[in-house]
Design a protein around this nucleic acid. Sequence first.
RNA 1: UAAGUAAGUCAGAUGAUCGCUGAAGUAAUUCAGAGGAAAGUCCGGACACCAUAGGGCAGGGUGCUGGCUAACGGCCAGUGAAGGUGACUUUAAGGAUAGUGCCACAGAAAAUAUACCGCCGGUUUUUCCGGUAAGGGUGCAACGGUGCGGUAAGAGCGCACCAGUGCUUAGGCGACUAAGCUGCUAGGUAAACCCCACUUGGUGCAAGACCUGAUAGAGAGGCGUAUGGGGCUGCCCGUCCCGCUUCCGGGUAGGUCGCUAGAGGUAGAAGGUAACUUUUAUCCCAGAUAGAUGAUCGUCUGAAACAGAAUCCGGCUUAUAGACUUAGUUAAUUU
RNA 2: GGAGCUGUAGUGUAGCGGUUAUCACGUCGGCCUGUCACGCCGAAGAUCGCGGGUUCGAUUCCCGUCAGCUCCG
Length: 117
Amino acid sequence: MELKALLKSENRLKKNKEFKITYKKGNSFANRDFVVYYKKNSLGFSRIGFSVSKKVGKAWKRNEIKRRLRETLRKNNSLLSKSCDIIIIVRQTIKDTDYFSMEKSLNHALKGSELID
RNA sequence: UAAGUAAGUCAGAUGAUCGCUGAAGUAAUUCAGAGGAAAGUCCGGACACCAUAGGGCAGGGUGCUGGCUAACGGCCAGUGAAGGUGACUUUAAGGAUAGUGCCACAGAAAAUAUACCGCCGGUUUUUCCGGUAAGGGUGCAACGGUGCGGUAAGAGCGCACCAGUGCUUAGGCGACUAAGCUGCUAGGUAAACCCCACUUGGUGCAAGACCUGAUAGAGAGGCGUAUGGGGCUGCCCGUCCCGCUUCCGGGUAGGUCGCUAGAGGUAGAAGGUAACUUUUAUCCCAGAUAGAUGAUCGUCUGAAACAGAAUCCGGCUUAUAGACUUAGUUAAUUU
RNA sequence: GGAGCUGUAGUGUAGCGGUUAUCACGUCGGCCUGUCACGCCGAAGAUCGCGGGUUCGAUUCCCGUCAGCUCCG
């Protein structure tokens, strides 16, 4: 699958139901900045959802975080072949970190959940 | 030069690589892509549905004058009051003689009554009676203020000036201002109830319309309309529904539309002190749906603030780095 | 996106415009007890979320603002 397709609509978690199922039946891993829920699916590709609480910041701040997360995942396309539903929850500590340390932290979180090598 | 006042503008730019959303195109590709506040949701509209969008009362809102506007609690121009040396700023600013309430403590007395210390007269010299409200004292506030006359002592009792109120004249569309005159003195509070004038139906794009369409009833016609219940903001009137029967077909979830050409932008002309209006030319300028603008590198000038459209407009309020423009004011120095 | 509610000692709450403000739990000190608890007595602890305005005087009335919470798919 092509790299740019990662963020097409079929690769995103959308429905509230899907989120709830992943929360209930999936496994989780957490570090200082992120919580990752993941669960195998039968689609042959992965779907990813983001969850950024209002406690993190105002609207423009949350948008910025989501943009940067998408950029990080775009560079790192190995997630797609896993066929998983993934939810990435952002914690409050992310507020003051810059792009590079965020990327590092996210990779650590994904390694911990054995989604990437 | 310093301090301060008012009005207004911009809101990083540019190049490269990799990406996101929409439109056009068979395709390569091309074009467009967050704000001055997009925010708060404090007002006003458009639009949609609710019942025909109704009547009365209650309730809500606004409150100096004139104008502007689709409308407004907004804006513009003025009036009064308050503040500032000044440029200028602020202003919920109708009515207290329609009525009701309240004015703690203190004080004689807090609104139609009264006299604590006093002053004066008479009698008596402990006091009592009468007159008085000038002085003291209380308080945010004491039935006008200052001065002179007057008096037993006093008092708008009389006079002059001032404050208020009423009337007349002049100016102004008007709020009001100026001058003159007569009578005389009226406590404050309406962001207390209230009165007066104007105004106000409710719900909100999660409005609503259509497509597909499990289970079972949204709709239409007829009959009945006694009681009771429910809906239409609260109550009353009025009105619709709930009952029975016949016909007909269609909740939630999903998708499409609503969804962006508009009280639109830019430039000019005319009218107006201005807000704004009229008109000519020209432009098309986000439309997502878990929700699109990012990352890296280079240069300028320094990894600049507040901060992200969600139906759309007009305002208000709040947040905001840095830079700039224009017009007044005050003070100091020099010529 | 839209609609609403609440802010008062550490916590949960009362409060007619008129004393820098009530009660309970908690805290601190004392009494009681061999000791602790219970009980009794006393004390401290509040910029009434913040900023303006009305008023002689605001926790209370009005305006703005901030924070928290609830409801509507």
